[in-house]
Every structure is written in C-alpha cells, then in structure tokens.
Design a protein around this nucleic acid. Structure first.
Lengths: 199, 199, 199, 199
DNA sequence: CATGAATGAGAGTTCATTCAT
DNA sequence: GATGAATGAACTCTCATTCAT
C-alpha cells in the first residue's frame, strides 16, 4: 500500500519511541523525564532519538495528542440509540471515576506538569479541549434529561461545567491529597442527587 | 531586649531565605528551583545556605508551613458576631475566587508539584489539612444557613466538600487550562444558586 | 583485522585512562587521587571519564588487577630448568629488593591505602593473593634447597612466610621510615645466612 | 604550683583536643580526619580549634609525640633486675603481638598514612625513632642471651632488626591483608626457634 | 580568648546535545 | 539514516579558613 517504505519505517520507530515515552511520563510525570531516560527506555541510540524528537517537550506533545483522541464518541452514539440520558450520565460518571481512582498508567500528572511549564491559550490547549468536549456532551445529556423530565430544570451549560470542575477537583486531589474512593463516590452521588428529580 | 540575640539573628536570616525562596517557588514551581537559585536569590554564599537548609525540600516544607497558617479564623469570628451565614459564605467564596484568579505570587503550583513528588497520607498532608479545614468551616456555615432557613436542606458535609472540589477544580484549571474570570464567576454563581432558597 | 573495532577503541581508551591513572596513583597514593585529577591527567572531558569508570575505586581496582598479573612464572620456569634453588632464591630476593628500594613508580603506597579503606578477606584480597603466591614459590624453592643439602632443614612454609614478612616490613619501612639500601642489604644477607648451610 | 593559671587552662584545652583527635585518628586514619571532625568530636568552636592548631597535620604531630613516649623503659628495668634475657624477649614479643592483633584504638594506620604524606629523614622520624629504640633494646637482650648461652651466636644488631622487620611486616599485613592470629603466632614461634639454643 | 556564621574553592555526578564514523 | 562516544555546562554538597562580635 505504502509508496514509501522508508517513511513507514520511520513512522514505526516513532511509534516505538512514543510508546516507551508514554510509559515513562505516566510513571515519573513530565519534567522528571529526561532524553536519556527515553533513550534507555526504548533501546534506541542517543543520536537516533534526536532524529525524531528534539526534546522531551516535543515527545510529550505527540504522546498527548495520541492520548486524547475522541474518546467521547461512545456517548453520542448512546444518545442516538435512544438510551435514557440519565443512564448515559451514569455511565459517563462511572468512566470518570475509574480515571480518577485508577490513576496508574495515566498521564494526568504529566499533563498537569506540562501545562504548568507551558501555559497555553484555551484554543491550543489539549487539556482544555478535552474539558470542553466533555462539557459539550454532558450539557447535551443534561438537556435531554431535562426534556425527558428526569432532571431538574437547570442551565445545562453551567451544570455540565460544574460537574466537570468537581471531577477536575477530584482528579487533582486524588493525585495530591490522598483522596480515597469513598470521597469520590460521595461526590458522584451528590452530583446525581442535585440533578435528579425525585421519583 | 532579646535574651538570645544569636538565635534571633539566625531566625532573621532564615526568614530572609524563606522569603526569597517563597518568591522563587511561586515563580518557578517546586521542582525547578535549585539550591543554587536560592543562593543567588538571597545573595548569600553557597555554603551559607546549607547552614540553614539541607535541600529545597526542607525549604519548601517550611515555606509551606508558614503559608498555610490559620487563615480561616476570620470566618469563625464572623459566625460569632452574628453575621448571616449566607453573607459569610459569600465572603468565603470571594476570597477563594481571588486566590484562584490572582495566581501570581501564589504557591499553588509549587504545592501541587511538591505533593506529586512526595505523596503523603491525609493526616500529614498540608494541602489536605487545609482542604479539610475549609470543609469544616463551610459545613458549619451551611448548617447555620439551613437553620436560618436561607439554604436548602442539604447534607452540610457533602455540600461543603462539593463546593471545595469545585474550587479545587477551578484552581488547577486556572493553572493549566486558561480558565478565565468569567468561568469562575459563573461557577461561584452556580454554587450559590444551588444552595440558596429563592426568596 | 578486528571483528569489533568499536569495542577495540573503547578498550584503547580505557587503557589510556588506566595508564594515566596508574601514574597518578603511584605519585599521590590512592585516596588523594580525584576523578578530576584523572580527567586532567588523561586530557578527556569530565563526563567522558564517567563513561568508563564510576569512581576512583573502580579505576584503582582495574589498575591493580593489571599490575599484579602473574609475575612469578619466571621462578617456576627456573626450577624446571634445573637452576639451583639457592640461586633462584637469590634472584627472587634481588627482585624484591629492587621493588622495595626503587619505589618510584610503584603502587605500593596506593595499594596499602586502598586496603586501609577497603578491608577485604584473604580470598578476595589482591595483596594477600600476591603474598601467598610468593610464599608458595619460596616454600617450594626452600624445599628444593633442603633436598639439595644447600639449606638448613627448616619448615619451608614457615620460613617462606618469615622471609615474606621481613620483605613486607622492609617495604612499608622504606615508604615511611627512611630505610636505606644498606639496611635492606643487611636484612637480605641475614635471611640468606639464616638459611644457607655453611660450606 | 603554676604561676600562670591561664596557660594552664590552655594546656587543659589542648589536652582535650588531642584526646578527641587521637580517637578520630585511630578510627579513620590520618588523611580522612578533617578539622570539622575534630571540632565536632571535642565540642569546641570552629574558630577555637584554630587558636591551638592550624591543621590536622599539627594535631597529629602532637598526638603522635604523646603516643610514642618511652614505653620501653620496662625492658631496661627487667634487665637490671636480673630477669633472664630470653624471658624478657618473650615479654617483648607478646607485647608486640598484642599491638599487632588488637589494632582497635591504635594509631598504626594513621601513622603510616602520615608518613606516606610527610616523608621524613630518619633522625626526625617518630616511627623510625621508635623502631630504632626497639632495635637497641632487643639487641641488648639478644647480646645478653648469647652471653648466657641461651641464644645462638648471631649478630645481635642484625638479628634485632630482623625481628623488628618481621613485626613491622606483620603489622602492615594485619591492617591490609586479613592476617590472623594463627599466622602471627607462627611467626613469633619461628623467630624464637631461630634464636633459641635447643636445650 | 572564644565563638560560630559566612565565604568560596573544589570535588562528584548527570545530561542535553553534537559529531565523526 | 543511525550510532554512541565525547563534550561541557549545571547542580549538589563539603570543608578549610576567616572574621566580626
């Protein structure tokens, strides 16, 4: 298929680097990872790495781009399928809960560190893009839920953002404050209770 | 006047170091600050710094301890004074808002970085202690507000934690996601609206 | 010619380092030699040295291993050749005498210092191994000398060790006590006189 | 008695320093001991130490002078008392044996290190002076032993030096080569056997 | 005299980055 | 393209030595 096998080989090598680097970033965060670490982790030569990436910054940008790729399509589909909005919101929160608690192997810490070091305006900011994407979907779900009479009549946008900020708060707290499962569960319950019309 | 002028002088020097270091931490975060940076910032000699602190870790711990000292007494007093709970909550949120937005000169980023590197159980964790302290006060205020008939009858503890997680979410987002004043305002409004009994 | 030129080059570099380091150790002893000294002595870069050796300890171990390599084979051969034991013992002592007196360029001091700092059990101890090796050969020579009727009938083992301790005593004394050639000669004579059957 | 109590106080302080320093030298050798070590060991002030000694070199010289003070008088007395020379030689060797094996708390290593760093001609050399002193006494004892018909008719001087070099060899070997009690005993026996006329 | 804070030189070590092969 | 040896800057930490009090 490929007209340029060499380019292909390069792409494969790049993927190898990114995979090893991702592992490192998830273990040590962003700033603690050195080019040397990456070289050792992927068994490539020192000079070789520089053919593909000039810095850990460049590597992380690509790792991050690969990471945050359209993981929200599933909720869109569910709406289309006619699944009740309340149920989908439940799924959504459960998914986020998993991310918050099972933080092994996640890039959360590295991503925060990266944006500490490289502040970026909202429209170029991967973290923000992801946040806004989730807000959009959540708002849509809440809107649907209100239409269905299952949820209180709140401002869907503001409510969605509110939920997302709580989740963001839980996420950073899980990384820094020894926040445990119980607290996360309580908050998810609280969120749902605030929205759900008592039946 | 002093019974021990030498100890006093040492204390003054320590304060000088802590002050310079605080500045650095607020500018560059925790892990980017080196002992060399501190030395240069406070104009003392290389070896001199080591007389007082053995590592940036040690310095930061002291900076942090000095920072998070009893900043919540004011709300307790206000309750005693008979100020309406709703009004105090307003003050409380306005204060947090200032911290979230005016993040120049704050240790937020450094503190997060520090706890990334040094995970600590809740009972030794300055960040968590501060969080819990705020929760306690907020819960008390909400309870009072409910008694006064100004607030909906929610679980004060969970509600307080919910608010704090939103604030925490706003805080990390302000540092990493280019979250602006408008969004913060919106969220504070949303919080208040969720609690306040329509008059 | 070489199947692995890169490894070869590395080996050459290592040899260069070891040669410069050996010079330093022989001049300054073991503990006074710093990594910086070695770097400057062999004209490579600071970081470069660390590619090959992690510490002066590591360097010295290799220097020492290279040094004390099978220097005693010659006596074995001589025995085989049928040279009289008494004559070989004479050679042996003359050789030791040269080492004791011409102590420029020797590792004696550095070796002593090294074992001061790194006490090692007999079976891992290069110095001891060398000592024991010499004892073995000397004992064999003495045994032969007794058989030939040239030497008194002493315990060859104990006598060999006795000679070696005298030599060791002369060695440390030459380094620390300004022991001169005359004294060394006297002692070698004394040793020989003690063994040799008067003809 | 003292006309100058101040000078006395100074002398006491000096003794305190020397005592602490001696301990250090016996533990860590000569060159590893720093002025800082001494300051900490004797609880004196940093500047205070410099009032008495300008360097570890100066301290060690005094420690050494105090150490090697006329410890051989006892043998002289014994000769006068009419104790048989052979018996006194036995005592002498037993004493040396104790020094060689029980090397805790001894300055042997430090002394060797010191003379590595500061080679000194025989007539200013404490170690050599001590050696020669022992030789003198031993020679006298051997001479007496020969007169008494207990010892073979050897050159007392050379024999005495021979014994001393064996002892010196055992001493350095005990420090560097894991030489044990058995070997030391063997050598002392060998020495005695070489001298003693079979009865 | 005595103190101990302060200085600054110097050693160890790690890595980003380059470059000859 | 790919390699990995080599460089040198940067940082950590320790001490001998001085000096104001």
């Amino acid at each position: 298929m490929s007209a340029n096998p060499a380019a292909n080989k390069a792409a494969i090598k790049k993927q190898l680097i990114l995979k090893s680097a991702r592992q490192l970033f998830s273990e040590k965060g962003y700033s603690a990872v050195t080019m040397k670490d990456v070289v050792e982790a992927c068994g490539i030569s020192r000079g070789g790495l520089y053919l593909y990436f000039g810095s850990t910054h460049d590597i992380f940008v690509e790792v991050m781009n690969a990471e945050y790729a359209d993981s929200n399509d599933v909720y869109i589909s569910a709406i289309m399928d006619g699944t009740p909005a309340t149920k989908i919101i439940g799924f959504f929160l459960k998914e986020k809960r998993k991310q918050i608690l099972g933080d092994t192997d996640s890039l959360t810490r590295a991503t925060y560190e990266f944006f500490f070091d490289h502040p970026m305006p909202a429209d170029e900011n991967r973290l923000r893009k992801d946040f806004d994407e989730s807000v959009k979907i959540l708002a849509k779900l809440i809107e649907k839920g209100i239409e269905d009479g299952d949820l209180y009549d709140v401002d869907p946008q503001a409510a969605a953002r509110n939920i997302m900020f709580v989740l963001e708060g839980l996420r950073i707290s899980a990384l820094t404050m020894d926040v445990d499962q119980k607290l996360v569960n309580e908050q998810l319950m609280y969120i749902i209770d605030s929205l759900l019309v008592a039946s």
